[in-house]
Design a protein around this nucleic acid. Sequence first.
DNA 1: GAGCTGACTAAGCGCTTGCTCAGCATGGTG
DNA 2: CACCATGCTGAGCAAGCGCTTAGTCAGCTC
Lengths: 212, 212
Amino acid sequence: MTSTPIADLWPTLPGGADARPEAAYRLLQAAVESFAERGFHATTTRDIATAAGMSPAALYIHYPSKAALLAEISRAGHAATLELVRTAAAGEGDPVARMRRLVEEFTSWHARARTVGRVVNYELHALPQDAYGVVAALRLDIEREVTALIEAGVAAGAFEVAEVRTAARAVTSLGIDVSRWYTDRSSETPEELGRRYGELVLRMLGAPGAAL
Amino acid sequence: MTSTPIADLWPTLPGGADARPEAAYRLLQAAVESFAERGFHATTTRDIATAAGMSPAALYIHYPSKAALLAEISRAGHAATLELVRTAAAGEGDPVARMRRLVEEFTSWHARARTVGRVVNYELHALPQDAYGVVAALRLDIEREVTALIEAGVAAGAFEVAEVRTAARAVTSLGIDVSRWYTDRSSETPEELGRRYGELVLRMLGAPGAAL
DNA sequence: GAGCTGACTAAGCGCTTGCTCAGCATGGTG
DNA sequence: CACCATGCTGAGCAAGCGCTTAGTCAGCTC
């Protein structure tokens, strides 16, 4: 049904501090797909449990509530995105090369993991307040990484932008919105899309010689 | 509470083919704000009716269902967006000038009318099937207008893009996503944001001399 | 003033929701 | 063998949902 690599976000059985039994993992997977397709409020605990091959009551053995499932998905999804952004921003090369890599991976992630991406970006309002606080902090960190990289590029004379914060918004915006519209039937692979968006963003930031 | 110019979308009493009594208008306004803030499924008919100053039963005198309210909001919002895009794309000047105006107005509309914009772009999955068909056709028309304008620019030698469809996606994507993140507390006015996004998009499309 | 209409409300129906609980099977341990 | 922890199910509860119904009332028409 879906090609989302959920396994990247939650290690299953073999070790790892937050490893979880297979049933809890199946519930996460079912919740991600239901929340992404119908939204949090339109998804019932019966939907999730049935998709995971259990009765509704079994859900409450592994998670205290439906909202806790959402919180865990949102937390892990944001943490993975921040990690991806940090790795690209702190990588090798000049600001132009690092920005290119950042956009390529940010974009292709939002295409590949679009089901997780939808939950992460469009179900924030359904999060319990304490979970929202955790997630909001992660989002701020992501924004800060992008802003800092643009500033580094400007300082190095590689970028030229009127307003760094607006440019940073535009960069993250482009990537996030991919999870809204990308589907199995899209003509480009996530990686192709990432490469093209990388080019578009470099030109947008005024990187000289970023042609085609 | 909100600064959304809902009045632009639905003429009230004085004439017009689709003029509607004040109570129906109040229900629309209340529904837009509730759907935008909490989402369609988390909004109850009691929420809407109370915000409009009526009992829940009064809603059903003016609209056949909660979903019909959403359908009307989505239809009118999409129609207004298409009109805005058509006007800008068919306006005066070369493709560069028209694209600049299109992005400026598309962006500032999504900032100004962000409550309507959120319902329009993020509650599509809650639409009844027939209403979805109408709206999907309008969305396709919007995409086609943008694509055609980019193609005109490429033909005139003013733009240079690897893939027209990808570039069109990026342009609309940037504008749509504004309705997700823009708030009262944003540091830029909708018009400032529009102007800056206009510049960013022209550079993204490879328009020569689009500096700053 | 009788008769009618359109906008509205109080009450509530039938159903679904998130979640609970008593009990059952399984398998490891003494 | 008895014991118990673990993972689960079937049945179901209280609350809240979209929507309906019967009836009220102001204002218009003749």
